[in-house]
């Protein structure tokens, strides 16, 4: 049977999303087709809202419904500490811990010459401007411990050191509640190297 073009279009669009294959896209499209008009309308509104209402914070490039995000506006946050992360999802991960009361800076990626990502295509110059304009005590680099993340950390450390600001990198080691014997060799090795006095 020929699939109606409208349905096919919806399936094609849905399957462009990450983690969604043709079959899942088809199921989603049929499910939307069966739903009440109200439900579909609120789905459409929610999706449109993502693009029309959300912006990047002019300061830290976190998601925000205004020019400035909640974290940057809050007077409870310590503005003299900046935690540099790769993506917005990393801000959410750190916020969930409730352990951090400083501000953020979202780079929007990491250095990756093979993918054509240069320092200019990340929000690095914006970070330097922030560091120049207000007094900063510490910059925490919370980038992923992979090849590109580590190199980006090295790069930032070089640029920031010239400004005489303390630069730290988040620790890496064993997950809490994890079993030593189940952790992979490299992680255990790093954890042993990074041991601390108690």
């Amino acid at each position: 049977m020929q699939i109606p073009e409208t349905l096919q279009n919806a399936v094609d669009e849905l399957s462009k999303l990450p983690g969604i294959g043709k079959k899942t896209a088809f199921r989603l499209a049929l499910n939307i087709l069966k739903s009440d008009d109200d439900k579909v309308k609120s789905l459409v509104l929610a999706l449109e809202g993502l693009k029309s209402k959300l912006h990047l914070c002019k300061n830290c490039f976190n998601l925000s419904e205004d020019d400035e995000c909640d974290i940057c506006r809050s007077n409870k946050r310590d503005k003299s500490i900046i935690c540099v992360v790769e993506e917005v999802s990393d801000v959410i991960a750190i916020e969930k811990t409730n352990e951090y009361s400083g501000t953020y800076h979202v780079l929007g990626g990491v250095l990756n010459p093979l993918m054509g990502v240069t320092p200019e295509s990340l929000k690095i110059n914006e970070l330097m401007v922030r560091l120049n304009n207000i007094t900063i005590k510490e910059v925490i680099l919370a980038l992923n411990p992979d090849t590109e993340g580590e190199t980006t950390a090295l790069y930032l450390a070089k640029r920031i050191k010239e400004m005489d600001i303390k630069v730290t990198r988040i620790a890496r080691g064993l997950p809490i509640g994890g079993d030593l014997e189940f952790a992979d060799e490299a992680t255990v090795g790093r954890a042993v190297l990074g041991r601390i006095v108690i």
């Binding site: 250095l111 010459p113 320092p119 090849t147 580590e150 190199t151 090295l154 790069y155 070089k158 640029r159």
Partner: peptide, 9 residues
Amino acid sequence: TELEAWTEK
């Protein structure tokens, strides 16, 4: 500085 960082890595 970018090349310096990759060199250090």
